[in-house]
């Protein structure tokens, strides 16, 4: 096996060192990139949560007994049944 010339050893060491530095940089860039993605995802989650909250409020308001009672009376002409109109099945 041929021996490397004297500067060759330093060249290999430098190459390894460079590779390590580049790897570190690459990993760091990946971390930053993932950080951006996480931040974006968090924003998306927050936005979806807000939308969910808004829809929850609308749902609760739409199904509130007072609202349903008003709709039943105004649109369908319904009212609380008189006793003789109620038949409770056994």
């Amino acid at each position: 096996m041929r021996k490397l010339p004297g500067w060759g050893k330093y060249g290999v060491l430098a190459a390894v060192g460079l590779a390590l530095v580049l790897s570190h940089l690459w990993i760091r860039l990946q971390v930053v990139s993932a950080g951006y993605a996480l931040a974006d995802t968090r924003q998306l989650i927050n936005a979806l949560q807000e939308e969910h909250h808004t829809l929850t409020i609308e749902w609760e308001a739409a199904t509130a007994p007072s609202h349903l009672s008003q709709l039943a009376g105004d649109r369908l002409g319904l009212s609380v049944p008189r006793p003789e109109q109620i038949i409770i099945l056994p």
Partner: peptide, 29 residues
């Protein structure tokens, strides 16, 4: 000033939920 998240999440979901004996329909009536 763009955010780069390292650790932690957004709004923490509720930990506990309190359930009442109350009935909304009876309460309304």
């Amino acid at each position: 000033q763009r955010a780069i998240l390292i650790r932690g999440g957004g709004q923490q979901p509720e930990t506990f939920r309190v359930r009442l004996t109350l009935d909304t329909t009876l309460q309304y009536v």
